[in-house]
Write a protein that binds this DNA or RNA. Sequence first.
RNA 1: GCGAUUGUGGCGAAGUGGUUAACGCACCGGGUUGUGGUCUCGGCAUACGUGGGUUCGAUCCCCAUCAGUCGCCCCA
Length: 435
Amino acid sequence: MTYQKLKGTADILPGESEKWQYIESSARDILKQYQFKEIRTPLFEQFDLFARGVGETSDIVSKEMYDFYDKGDRRVALRPEGTAGVVRSYVENKLFAPEYHRPMKLYYIGPMFRYERPQSGRQRQFHQLGVEVFGSKNASVDVETMLLALDLFKHFQLTDLKLVINSLGSNESRQLYRKELIEFLEPHFEELSKDSKDRLYKNPLRVLDSKDKKDKEIVKGAPSILDYLDEDSKEHFESVKRMLTAMTIPFEIDTNMVRGLDYYNDTIFEIITTNPKFGANATICAGGRYDSLVEEVGGPSTPAFGFGFGLERLILMLEHMGFDYPVSSLLDAYVVTIGEAVNEEAAKLTHELRQNGLSVEREFMSRKPAKQFKTADKLNARLVFTIGETELKERKVRVKDLTSGLENEVDLEELYTRFSEVYPTLLKSLEKEGE
RNA sequence: GCGAUUGUGGCGAAGUGGUUAACGCACCGGGUUGUGGUCUCGGCAUACGUGGGUUCGAUCCCCAUCAGUCGCCCCA
């Protein structure tokens, strides 16, 4: 084998691609219900956009970015997530202008890239669906968007899901909390894991969701970020909780939940599967509020809320629960050819049938009729049109209904010129008595 | 970045330090010259990831490398 796909990439082949189409179109339907509009942004951007937007200290930027220099010596990066590019586009195209309806609700579906070791539910090129809402600080935006996420998963009949929320407060209150947290952790410095030691001063909140057993023990006694929220953040979070409760949406609060990306404030959330098969990949959807990113990227101060989830993981989940994808194997007709002489007429017949809206496949390999019927059967064809030298001479074609087993013949010219009259009659003649 | 495990024809899967490397599926052809899930007979194929080494000889032993899978870190 001369060439092979790069590590962490995948070919989505027929059989698999139908699943993707189904998921994407279902998701688009729901997004439409919620009045989200699609936005398509480039797969690569200036490196700095991601570095700044996602956060320099995040793992994504520090070690997982797929970046390179182009021929113009520009440092570019394949997008590791969707938000930064959408925010850039929002700002660059001035979508904050007064003529646009506010808030602006956008979604995207597409490939993302992260340079890391592939494993179950994780690839270097993977796909995410994400949404961003710009221009409203209203807590009901938080709630609506979380409900949308839940709704998307509900649509695929996913169970074992859990909505977990937390609040990071305002940037100011978080600074305060950060200081307190460092003070709390410092006495335990030597007991902390290596990763946590590194993070203590760079991004101490990350220590909170450390997977290390000892860290977890230490963190148990840490102050809760919720105690440091200022009045606005407190009320915002209360409002979110009230609405969720009023709508009887079950949720949990995890005060130790933080974000790998640095731009969040106030409400953050995750949707987690409790299915043990997922292990470290339990989080299937994550998002939250990011009120300062737009400004950070050069736009006017604009509150925003969004989330993203990985389609590979969604498909994996559906696989685990044995989801039945609706089969769309509709083949109206298979054209059987007998003898080389009919090749051209078969081409015409196939074309005419397709012009009249039928989904048609034909025989190209000139196999014997029995094999062709077998194929028609396998492809789940409704009808088989048989054309051989006899039919060609008589300008007719035999038509068999594979369900009823009945066969009839029809004049070729009539079929070509008066299809809408001939075809229904033909179908009727092939129906079994009493059905 | 770290660890474990695997790599045989299109797919699945046996196997051995030594003449022609099983089998199943799929595919193709035949079973009175033109009709469909079954049965039967036959055929098919650039198969032992790649590069070294050990050996008289390696698909099977050793090393490296690439790739897959899984786990850790982190994340979707």
